[in-house]
């Protein structure tokens, strides 16, 4: 035995990967470069096209409400505010729902129900947005007026919920002021993004370490005590990340919004009132207009939306990456 240890070991020849591997690497690098070039092309093309419109409009692009590119008066003040309002309504409805659902699935549901629910939520996240839009257009639009009127009647002192041009005490007052509003579009988008948010939150909650859960129970915590002291702090990153990802989806949603709103080109802060707009709906509405200026202006609006979702997505990514969630995955 000792001989074997003392004997000078022959230096092994570390063959740097052979021809097969070199080809493999080259192919992978080519694929990566191709994707990079494609993506960079999309980005730079959009930006260069947008710049000519931005140059024509200058800073007023951010402050103008109208959209008349051919006469040179166009800006995203109205549509961008509309987009953000719809997304805000959607997120403020979707997040509580998704949190409750995720907590139910990861903490309360029996094992058998849990598997079904997980599959169901994931399926709902895959349902095409046009189906949600269809539901909002054909069903919700007509049935949510009562809720909208109630909100505006009793919470109308809150500026966002005010509805002008309607008297709640007049039983014969027209109800059309409550249709096609930011609120209805937000409600539909909320249902659309809730499964997405929920599925990320559930993932984060279910990764809360079992040792700390049992520790909390052993110290006498109730189930809610355990959730508050272990699951929620642990899943905080996942919650914020999931919310931001849902926000990104909500900002970019086109079809469901387009089907519901009646577009207006003024800043419309009354979310319950008829008339709303969003950047993506604007593009879907006006893309057919010929003329390079109109198209370039739409590109500029699209780029502004893209930058917004980009910031939201990267913020989400960095928050999820920095949180403790998933720290145990590399075992």
């Amino acid at each position: 035995m000792t001989d074997a240890l003392v004997a000078p070991e022959q230096r092994r020849r570390l063959r740097p990967s052979g021809g097969q591997d070199r080809v493999f690497r080259v192919v992978l690098r080519l694929a990566g470069t191709a994707v990079l070039v494609l993506m960079a092309m999309v980005g730079t093309f959009l930006f260069t096209k947008a710049i000519s419109a931005l140059r024509a409009a200058g800073w007023s692009f951010l402050t103008t409400e109208e959209w008349e590119p051919d006469s040179g008066r166009f800006g995203i003040a109205a549509v961008l505010t509309g987009t953000i309002l719809i997304a805000t309504v959607a997120i403020s409805i979707a997040v509580p729902l998704a949190t409750g659902m995720a907590l139910y699935v990861s903490e309360y549901a029996p094992a058998r129900v849990r598997r079904i629910l997980i599959n169901m939520i994931d399926l709902m996240a895959a349902v095409p947005s046009v189906v949600y839009g269809l539901w909002g257009f054909a069903f919700l639009q007509a049935h949510v007026i009562g809720l909208a009127r109630w909100l505006s009647t009793y919470l109308g002192w809150f500026p966002l919920f005010k509805v002008t041009g309607s008297d709640p005490r007049d039983p014969l007052a027209t109800e059309t002021v409550y249709t096609s509003s930011t609120f209805i579009a937000g409600l539909v988008v909320a249902l659309m993004v809730a499964p997405v948010i929920c599925s990320i939150m559930r993932e984060a909650f279910s990764q809360a370490p079992i040792g700390e859960r049992e520790g909390a129970y052993a110290l006498g915590a109730t189930r809610w005590g355990m959730i508050r002291s272990v699951v929620l702090p642990f899943g905080k990153g996942g919650m914020i990340g999931g919310t931001m990802l849902g926000l990104g989806r909500a900002l970019g949603e086109t079809i469901a919004v387009y089907l519901i709103i009646s577009p207006v080109f003024v800043i419309q802060p009354h979310v319950l009132q008829n008339g709303a707009n969003s950047v993506s709906a604007l593009i879907a509405l006006r893309y057919g207009e010929s003329g390079p200026m109109a198209l370039s202006a739409l590109m500029a609006a699209g780029v502004a939306l893209f930058l917004l979702t980009l910031v939201v997505n990267f913020a989400a990514g960095s928050i999820v990456a920095r949180s403790r969630s998933g720290a145990e995955s590399e075992a």
């Binding site: 999309v42 093309f45 990104g248 970019g252 086109t254 590109m299 780029v303 893209f306 990267f314």
Partner: peptide, 24 residues
Amino acid sequence: FVRTIVEAMTALPSIVAGLFIYAT
């Protein structure tokens, strides 16, 4: 670098992707 770009492009709203193909 490629990963960052790909992650950035997941944020591309689908309507903007359509607009890109429409324009090019």
